[in-house]
Nucleic acid binder design. Structure first.
Lengths: 204, 204
DNA sequence: TTGACATGTTACTGACCAGTAAGTACCTAT
DNA sequence: ATAGGTACTTACTGGTCAGTAACATGTCAA
C-alpha cells in the first residue's frame, strides 16, 4: 500500500502550545483522522502532531479505538452546540433554523479541505459493530435526524417525518458524492434541491 | 487498533478451485475489500482466501494499490453489463429501465452483507488523488450519472439533468446512510421517494 | 526428453503498527 | 523542602505490513 505519508506538510500549524496535552491530542487527531482517514493515521503521528509523545497519549486515552470514539464525540458536541446557537438566533422560526443549517453546511463544503461527514466516513471505515466509535456515530446520526424532523414539524411542513428523511438522504448523498465526483458534481445542486423541497411542503 | 481480524469465518466458501489464480484473487479481493474495507485487508489475507500465496498475487498485480484499482474496475464492468442487460430487456422504455435499476438496488440493500456503494466507500478510504483507484472511481461515477441523465432525457422527464442529479444524490445518500443508521433508518424510504420524484417529473 | 512457463513454498527485508516499561524533568501545593 | 502528580524521553515488545529473492514443483507442448 502506498504508505499515505504524503502529508508531513509542516505548514499545518501546531495546536496552540498552551493547551493541555489532552486537548492538543484531540485537536491533532481531529485534523488527521478527518483529512486522511482513521485507519491511515497512526497514534505516533497524532502524538507528534500534538507536540507530545505516545506515552502521554496513552495516559489520556486507553486505546486508539477509544481515541477515535472521543474524536467523534467532540464533533458531535460541536454539532449540538451549533444547533443550540441557531435555536437562540432564530427562536420560534424553525424554517429559518433549517435554512441556517443548510447555509452552514454549504459553507463547509466550499472549504477545499472538506471531506464530507466525519461520521458517515467513520461508519464506512469501521464496519465492526462492537467498535466504541459505532455507538457515537449511531447516536449522533439519530439525534441529527430527529432534530431535523422536530424542526420540520414545528415549521408546519406537511409530512414532516418523510420530509426529514428526504432532507437527510439528500444531504448525506451530497456530502459523500462530493468525495468521488468533486464539488462541481451533482452535489452542487444541493442548496437548490433543499429549498425546492422545503417550498413544496411549506404550510399555507 | 483492535485488529479487525474478527473474520476468519471459514464458512465463506473458497472460490471455485478450477478458476485461474488471477480470477480467484480478484474474487477474494472483491469479497474482503467490500466487506471489511480496503485498508483493513492485507494482501496476505487475500492470497490465503484465494487459495494461493502472496508471490502469485504479485505476479498478477504489481502492487496492492493496483489490485484495488482492478477490484473496482471489475465492479464497474459488471455495472455496465447490468445496464446493457436492462437496456435489452426494456428497449425504448427508459422509465422502465430506471425502475428496474431501482429494483436491483433495493434488492442489493436487502442483503445483510450490503455495505453500500463500493466506489463511494473506496473514495472515503482513499483521499489521495494520485491513487490508481481514483481514476476508476471517478470515471465510473460520471458514467453512471450520465447514463441516468440520458435515460431521464429519453423518458421525456422535465429537467432531466437536474432530475438525474437529484436521483443520484438520493441514492448515494441512502447507501451511505444505511451504514450508520441501518436498513430501517431513513434509507428505507428510498423507493418511495424515487418513485415520487419520477412521477412529479413525468411527461404528459 | 527436454524445455518453457505458470504456480507454489519458504524465508526474508525493512518499515510500520499498537501498546508498554522504566526512569527523568517539571510544576505546584503544602 | 518536599512530596505528588503530570508530562517528557528513550527504548522496547511482539506483531503486521507490503514487497522480494531463491528455489521447488507441476504441466504441457515440441
Amino acid at each position: 500500500m502506498s504508505r499515505a505519508k504524503t502529508a508531513p506538510p509542516q505548514h499545518s500549524r501546531r495546536p496552540a502550545a498552551d493547551l493541555p496535552p489532552r486537548d492538543r491530542i484531540l485537536a491533532a487527531a481531529r485534523e488527521l483522522f478527518y483529512a486522511r482517514g482513521i485507519r491511515a493515521v497512526s497514534v505516533d503521528e497524532i502524538a507528534a502532531a500534538a507536540d507530545t509523545n505516545k506515552m502521554t497519549l496513552y495516559r489520556h486515552f486507553e486505546s486508539k479505538d477509544r481515541l477515535v470514539a472521543e474524536y467523534l464525540r467532540l464533533l458531535a458536541d460541536e454539532a449540538d452546540a451549533f444547533w443550540e446557537q441557531v435555536g437562540r438566533a432564530h427562536p420560534r422560526d424553525a424554517r429559518k433554523q433549517l435554512e441556517t443549517w443548510l447555509q452552514h453546511l454549504c459553507e463547509g463544503m466550499a472549504d477545499p479541505a472538506n471531506r464530507g461527514c466525519a461520521f458517515a466516513n467513520a461508519a464506512v471505515e469501521i464496519p465492526e459493530k462492537d467498535h466504541p466509535a459505532r455507538e457515537v456515530i449511531e447516536r449522533h446520526k439519530i439525534s441529527q435526524r430527529d432534530h431535523i424532523a422536530r424542526l420540520c414539524r414545528n415549521a408546519g411542513f406537511s409530512g414532516p417525518e418523510k420530509l426529514a428523511d428526504e432532507i437527510f438522504l439528500l444531504l448525506e448523498g451530497a456530502r459523500v458524492n462530493m468525495q468521488s465526483m468533486g464539488r462541481e458534481g451533482p452535489c452542487h445542486r444541493m442548496p437548490e434541491l433543499f429549498r425546492m423541497l422545503l417550498n413544496s411542503k411549506a404550510p399555507d
